[in-house]
Computed example of a mutant assay.
Amino acid sequence: MKIAVLYGGTSGEREVSLSTGKGIIQALKNKGHDVVGIDFSPEKISEILKLDVDMVFIGLHGRFGEDGRIQGLLDMVGLPYVGSGVLASALAMDKAKSKQIFSSNGILTARSESYDVTKRETFDSIQKHIEATFNLPFVIKPNQEGSTLGLTIVKEASQIRKGIETAAQSDSTILVEEYIGGREVTVPVVGQKGKEQALPVIEIIPKNDYYDFDSKYKPGGSEHIVPAHLDLSLTERLKEEAVLAHQLLGCEVYSRVDFIINENNEPIILEVNTLPGMTPTSLFPDSAQEVGWSYDDLIQKFVELSSSHK
């Protein structure tokens, strides 16, 4: 097939997307496809409108890639693409909205509040509300940024204002949620709509205090344990809830669902990533390897699943 790969982008996750794109392009070539790579930015929309390809593989992360906008553009011009559509992408990106959907369907989430931070003069009252509502420690983060960018773990009241300001630089809405300590795990989900399966659960052991940007993307920043050493019933629950979360948002083809296992051994969902990192050392390919799929096979599988339903 002739496939265009969109990568790079303009979000805070550009660097990661560059290596995701490189990996996908190489894998598609290895599988015999004719590949066009586009380092995408909104100024290049005319290039997308002129594309003459069978399919688009979106290797973007964060804003303009993962939030449904590029999917809407491709839908309008009738170009099939790999992965979730407009609504699922937008919902998954909006942490506050997706959490409402999860908790109303019985998936445990951390208690949280969202705040509109478009006007600086409201920061004082937001700070007061946060102080009255949350016990330390808690997390302040942008509602729609990925890769823990703009995130602050607030351990002392003196950090609240800075946390609001940092998160507000990345988004017009911020999310404050209780901090849940515990084991970090993630579950890749793949398959046709209604027939999705969860791949082996991965435990992430960060070298830093928590799984931040460096832990995610720097070599040796974290250790991945696949499959995670968890008892069978917890493993099954994580897999079931990951598939359910994927389906509740209406995701397609693949996603990766992040959880924290709290001190009571319960999974608390963090978020669904509709375009998880796909560098050859990323979490999703790591898990796929456990069931015998090479990186190239995995990318090919996404293409086949997308061809069969779009």
Rank of each mutant, 00 (worst) to 15 (best):
G292L: 10
K97N: 10
Q100H: 13
N135I: 12
L108S: 13
S98P: 06
D297K: 14
D116H: 00
E156W: 04
K301H: 13
S112G: 11
F57H: 04
Y254A: 11
E178D: 10
V53M: 12
L270F: 08
D116W: 00
S307K: 14
D296N: 11
S255E: 10
I70S: 03
S89H: 01
A198D: 13
G85P: 01
G72C: 06
E241T: 09
E290C: 14
A88P: 02
F57T: 04
L51V: 11
A96S: 14
K218D: 13
S233I: 07
F134E: 05
I25M: 03
V139L: 04
K218P: 03
D94Y: 01
L238W: 08
H61Y: 02
F213E: 05
D171H: 08
I225G: 01
Q247N: 10
E263M: 10
K193G: 09
P137N: 12
E47C: 10
E13A: 02
Q144N: 15
I126Y: 00
R161T: 15
G68D: 01
D212V: 08
D296Y: 03
I205A: 05
S147T: 09
D212A: 10
K193S: 11
E184I: 08
P142T: 08
S308K: 11
G72R: 03
I130K: 00
I153Q: 11
G250Q: 00
I164T: 01
V243S: 01
Q159D: 12
P285S: 06
V257E: 06
T122S: 15
